[in-house]
């Protein structure tokens, strides 16, 4: 499952999509909207926008690179767009592998890669009424 969606993400559904006999280790990462920004401003909420088709293609590319590196894996990546409140799920990455070590490593790598290059953008809204586009460190 690779998707960008305007509706709240059901993390259990994303995780369920990677479950299969023979895959004994499943690691799911959930990214939530935090109440403080990286520079410690009070966050009211945020808006994500994406180049949808390129973002989904990038998710597929990330999964393919992980399989190349770690072998057999089942990967799902779903990212929210639109307006989100503090405490909502922004992104879910689920990885199933035959064993746990690879599942942990591949899941961590998947979210790192997503943050690096997926065509998705975040505008934070602050409680003081200001807002700002926030870019990930390269």
């Amino acid at each position: 499952m690779f998707a960008v969606t305007e509706t709240p993400i059901d993390a259990h559904r994303v995780e369920a999509s990677v479950l299969a006999p023979g895959y004994g280790g499943v690691v799911t990462f959930l990214g939530f909207v935090r109440e403080r920004s990286d520079d410690d401003r009070a966050v009211d909420g945020l808006a994500y926008e994406a180049h949808e088709s390129m973002a989904v293609a990038e998710f597929e590319k990330i999964a393919a690179a992980l399989r190349e590196r770690y072998g057999d894996l089942r990967v799902a990546i779903v990212h929210r767009t639109g307006s989100l409140n503090v405490g909502e799920v922004a992104v879910v990455v689920a990885v199933a592998a035959p064993h746990r070590r690879v599942a942990f490593a591949a899941c961590a790598e998947a979210i790192d890669e997503l943050k690096k290059g997926a065509p998705i953008w975040k505008k934070e809204r602050y409680l003081d009424g200001t807002d700002d586009w926030r870019e990930n460190a390269p």
């Binding site: 994500y48 973002a55 065509p119 953008w121």
Partner: peptide, 10 residues
């Protein structure tokens, strides 16, 4: 053409 500023996803 798509003009893509630095990513902020995740």
């Amino acid at each position: 053409l798509a003009l893509l500023p630095p990513s902020g996803g995740g």
